[in-house]
């Protein structure tokens, strides 16, 4: 047993951030913070759920077979201490900001849960109007053609462009008079040149050349409405 295993039990990382990110990418797991852009609350919720599952799995083992975390003096044995906040900082966070109670986060871990949640959402849509504006993200695996890897934070656009997106939807007077709005071609070389001409449905979070697959492997997040 290497001497640094005790440090790993205590929550230290075994490898560097770049190597750990590559390992997580190869194994298909989510990696913080690259895989969760601007979703810190959702990530915290998901990590708490993971910790709960790990602790339940640990408590299901017979007591003689469990790892005794008291001997190893692990403060948070089921999470990693460097990026997960401790119980003390969580209490501080909850007392200082009350935004966490307002926003309700839903964790969906399987296709069955996703269909159940969509059905429940469709039933509640008539009674509760605010639920209709709920947008939830699905982690997707991308299969790009070609050999070049995708940039992180690249835009995922839908392939089929709806008609109202091409015409100006904000132009209400044209919609009243039912006049077809011709899409304007922006001159090249200005700010509008880099605006996407298709509706953006998601973002790429990580992309590497995978040696186990022999091709580019990429992950990202898209809106669930675009998948279903």
């Amino acid at each position: 047993m290497a001497f640094w295993n005790s440090f790993c039990y205590a929550g230290a990382r075994g490898v560097g951030l770049r190597e750990r990110r590559f390992l997580y990418h190869e194994s298909g797991r989510c990696h913080f913070p690259e895989d969760f852009p601007e979703c810190r609350d959702a990530y915290r919720c998901w990590a708490q759920f993971e910790i709960q599952i790990a602790s339940e799995r640990w408590s299901r083992r017979p007591p003689s077979k469990r790892v005794n975390f008291v001997i190893y003096r692990a403060p948070e044995p089921f999470g990693v201490a460097d990026w997960l906040e401790t119980a003390l900082s969580l209490q501080k966070h909850s007392t200082s900001t009350e935004e966490a109670s307002v926003t309700k986060l839903v964790i969906i871990r399987s296709c069955k849960d996703l269909t159940e949640y969509s059905a429940q959402r469709a039933n509640l849509q008539h009674s509760l109007s605010f639920l209709s504006s709920v947008r939830y993200l699905v982690r997707v695996r991308l299969h790009p053609c070609g050999r070049a890897s995708l940039d992180s934070n690249a835009l995922i656009c839908s392939a089929d462009v709806p008609e109202e997106y091409l015409g100006g939807t904000s132009d209400q007077t044209a919609a009243e008079h039912h006049q077809p709005v011709t899409p304007l071609e922006e001159p090249r070389g200005n700010v509008h040149d880099h605006q996407p001409t298709r509706p953006v449905i998601g973002r790429v979070t990580s992309s590497h050349y995978s040696w186990s697959d022999g091709c580019i492997r990429a992950y990202g997040f898209v809106l669930a409405d675009a998948i279903c």
Binding site: G28, I108, R109, S110, C111, L114, V138, R139, V140, R141, L142, H143, P144, C145, G146, L150, D151, N153, A154, L155, I156, C157, S158, A159, D193, H194, P196, R198, I201, V204, A218, Y219, V222, A226, I227
Partner: peptide, 21 residues
């Protein structure tokens, strides 16, 4: 679906596959 880098104008075609446990 299509993927476009932030700084480029070229779209690349990709296939999406949802990752769920």
């Amino acid at each position: 679906a299509l993927v476009r880098d932030v700084t480029s104008l070229v779209y690349r075609e990709v296939r999406l596959e949802p990752v769920l446990d």
